[in-house]
Simulated assay, not measured.
Amino acid sequence: MLIKRRKHIVPELNTTSTADISFMLLTFFLVTTSMDVDRGLVRQLPPLDNDKEQTIDATEVSRENTMDFKLTDSGTLLLNDKPIATKNLRLKIADFIRRRPTQHVIYVNPDPAASYNAYFQLEDEIMAAYNSVRNEMAQRHYHRPYAALNEKQRNHVRDLCPQHISETYNTTVATPASDSQKPQPPSATTANNKEGGKR
Rank of each mutant, 00 (worst) to 15 (best):
N109F: 09
T76W: 01
R63Y: 12
I165N: 06
H141C: 05
P11Q: 02
P162G: 00
N155S: 08
K182P: 02
M67E: 02
A191C: 07
I93G: 05
Q54N: 13
P47E: 13
N192A: 06
S62Q: 10
K92V: 05
T168A: 14
L26W: 13
I106V: 12
K4R: 11
T86A: 07
K52C: 11
Y169A: 08
V157M: 01
D51M: 07
E60C: 05
Y107L: 13
S17F: 14
V61S: 04
Y169K: 09
A118V: 07
P162H: 00
Q181W: 07
D20C: 08
M67R: 11
S34M: 11
E53T: 15
N131Q: 01
A114G: 09
D159W: 04
E167A: 09
K182S: 08
L122E: 06
A113D: 14
R99V: 14
L77S: 07
R5L: 13
R6N: 09
R140K: 15
I165Y: 05
S178L: 12
L30H: 11
T32H: 14
A113L: 11
E136G: 02
N193V: 13
L91T: 12
R199Y: 07
V42L: 07
L77C: 10
E60N: 12
T16V: 11
R99F: 08
L48F: 10
N150C: 01
H164C: 05
A177H: 13
E151T: 04
E195R: 00
A19M: 05
H104L: 03
R99I: 12
K152I: 04
L26F: 07
D57E: 10
V133Y: 02
F23W: 05
V105F: 04
F23T: 10
K152R: 09
V61C: 06
D68S: 08
N131P: 00
T55A: 12
T33Y: 09
R43C: 03
A148V: 00
F23R: 13
Q153N: 01
Q139T: 03
L48H: 15
V173L: 05
Q54K: 15
A148K: 01
A147S: 14
H141D: 12
K4N: 08
A174F: 13
P183S: 09
L77K: 07
K82I: 13
R43M: 06
I84H: 06
S17V: 07
A177W: 04
T76Q: 09
D159F: 06
L26E: 15
V173Y: 11
C161D: 03
A19S: 06
A138Q: 00
P145Q: 03
I126H: 01
F69K: 02
N88R: 14
S166K: 07
S166F: 04
L41M: 11
R98P: 01
R144I: 00
D124R: 14
R100G: 11
K87H: 13
H143R: 00
Q44L: 06
K7N: 13
R100P: 02
I21C: 02
L71Q: 10
S115C: 03
R140F: 06
D68G: 01
A129S: 03
D95G: 03
L160V: 05
I9W: 01
S74M: 05
I84A: 10
P112I: 05
S74I: 07
A114Y: 10
Q163G: 01
S132N: 04
